[in-house]
């Protein structure tokens, strides 16, 4: 069974998110991954560096990895329990949205908008 989370916020329309619970019955390991496209690799890296500073609160229960290729930021979670995965993913999404909105408002493309 694969669930697809749809981002309601317009700024995250480019988020592709899939939660793979197929192995939940036989294997306690749950995974969840997504990609976000940014206008440049530099901006994708800025977001990755920002979100990397805060470690997962329960590293023994939830593991998070991030990587940047071009303007694409890929994030994946691994957890032993759906409850922990949901909590981590949810609070991470809040911060990802905030970081992305900050770039949209104060990043390179916003300069013209601000002075216009």
């Amino acid at each position: 069974m694969a669930a697809t989370a749809t981002a309601t916020r317009t700024e995250l329309e480019n988020v592709v998110s899939t939660i793979d619970e197929a192995k939940a019955k036989v294997d306690p390991e749950l995974t969840c991954s997504m990609q976000v496209e940014y206008p440049s690799e530099e901006l994708a890296r800025i977001v990755m560096v920002t979100l990397s500073v805060d470690a997962e609160l329960q590293p023994d229960k939830v593991a998070r990895t991030m990587e940047v290729r071009g303007g694409r930021l890929s994030i994946s979670f691994r957890a032993t329990d759906a409850r922990f995965l949901r909590a981590s993913f949810s609070s991470f999404m809040d911060m990802l949205v905030l970081a992305t909105r900050t770039i949209e408002e104060f990043g390179p493309s916003s300069i013209h908008a601000a002075s216009a």
Binding site: I46, V47, V49, T50, L51, V53, D54, S91, M95, L98, A99, T102, I103, F106, G107, P108
Partner: peptide, 18 residues
Amino acid sequence: GGPLQVASIVVRILSQLW
């Protein structure tokens, strides 16, 4: 914790942008 983190995220982004 939660409220504190909000400001820190914005600050990290602005620090790198600016």
